[in-house]
Design a protein around this nucleic acid. Structure first.
Length: 353
DNA sequence: ATGTGCGAGTATTGTGTCTC
DNA sequence: GAGACACAATACTCGCACAT
């Protein structure tokens, strides 16, 4: 058993232990989890607003800029999701992104602690160069010059002291760098969130939920031969009757990662040892119709690759595309209608069935 | 402590389609 | 048929986990 870390000991604000604690905290006061409200929890925890547009993120930022096609779709999605979460369009930002917001608070504490620990050592390292005018860490002259001299100087009675400027430039850097950490949080965080949701459903007691388990730790799968490295699964649910569900959880999908689906399945099938079928399920929040269609239609031999393709809420992409007449959008609507692209609600309902 | 693998978003390059 | 545009594929980047 891993040692339980106090929040004050956490070194990785966005790491797995920290995420586990944060989810514990969130669900502690979030009320009951049901298949019907699961998608709202996913969005409250993970959805974020794009800084450049202020809108809920559903597509790559550059393509969602005003005047481009995904700006209209982002507006439509923002409208739809605000409504669904009971927030005014202007207030959605505060309703969502809970994990990242909480994580950055923790991160600030970690950075402060680390800096305090390192100050002494840093002074030693700089000692031999004392008095020679070496640059102070965190100065960033370009940022300083353009920010203060060009933008603020006319309004300032006197130039701010260097220490204040260092603090400012450091804070700006931290702010910008934080956005990168989201990538990691969304990736593994999505798996964590799905696992937490399933584990808190009414009737979850009869299932076993594993986050990122090694494949051969699951019933009916054997270790890979030779020095082949052990396979991991994003999420595994062992249901009643030894039903095995292997979940690939991807917040979004890219062509290069799409190739991986087939490779993963092939490995899972090859290492299956019990001679029984298992479910292979994709859960995603992708919004691009073509990518979703591809996932729905992808085949292996004589069957679809995925037993089910699940979207956090297919009504989202449908709202984004609106009355679009594009082929891919029309096809997407068909997949939703037929149930091939399934809502998280429906999938969870069937799971606890 | 350091290197590798994997997750994600972003940036860039490539391709098809529509308009004038 | 050149240019603009959207869509698609590819390449790159960053941070965390885990193994060495």
């Amino acid at each position: 058993m891993k040692k339980e870390l106090e929040p004050a000991e956490i070194q990785r604000a966005f790491g797995s232990e920290s995420r586990r604690q944060m989810l514990e905290e969130y669900f502690g006061k979030a009320g009951k989890v049901t298949p019907a409200n699961a998608w709202k929890h996913v969005y409250r925890l993970l959805l974020w607003t794009d800084r450049t547009t202020g809108l809920a993120h559903c597509y790559e930022s550059d393509k969602a800029q005003p005047g481009r096609p995904w700006y209209a779709r982002s507006l439509a999605f923002h409208d739809w999701v605000s409504e669904g979460l009971g927030a005014a369009p202007g207030d959605l930002g505060a309703e969502v992104d809970w994990l990242f917001t909480r994580g950055t608070e923790r991160l600030a504490a970690v950075i402060a602690r680390r800096q305090a620990e390192r100050t002494g050592r840093a002074a030693e390292q700089r000692a031999p160069y004392d008095g020679r005018g070496f640059p102070e860490p965190g100065e960033d002259p370009a940022l300083r010059e353009s920010l203060v001299r060009e933008e603020l100087a006319p309004w300032l009675p006197s130039p701010p002291p260097p220490a204040a400027m260092r603090k400012l430039t450091q804070r700006i850097r931290t702010h910008l760098a934080q956005e990168n950490k989201r990538k990691n949080l969304v990736g593994e965080g999505f798996e964590d969130v799905l696992g937490s949701l399933i584990g808190r459903l009414p009737g979850a007691a009869k299932m076993k939920v594993n986050g990122r388990p090694v494949l051969h730790s699951l019933p009916g799968f054997r270790p890979p031969p030779g020095n082949e490295k052990p396979r991991k699964v994003d999420l595994a649910v062992i249901g009643p009757g030894k039903r095995r569900v292997l979940v690939s959880a991807k917040w979004s999908v890219r062509a290069d990662r799409e190739e991986q689906f087939g490779v993963d399945f092939e490995a899972y099938a090859r290492l299956e040892d019990a001679g029984r079928d298992f479910d292979f399920v994709l859960i995603t929040n992708e919004f691009d119709a073509a990518r979703l269609n591809a996932a729905c239609e992808r085949r292996r031999q004589n069957a679809t690759l995925f037993t089910s393709v699940v979207h956090v809420n297919p009504a989202g992409p449908l709202a984004a595309y609106g009355e679009s007449s594009r082929d891919s959008a029309a096809k997407l609507a068909e997949h939703v209608k037929s149930g091939r692209l399934m809502s998280l609600e429906r999938w969870l309902s069937k799971l606890i069935g």
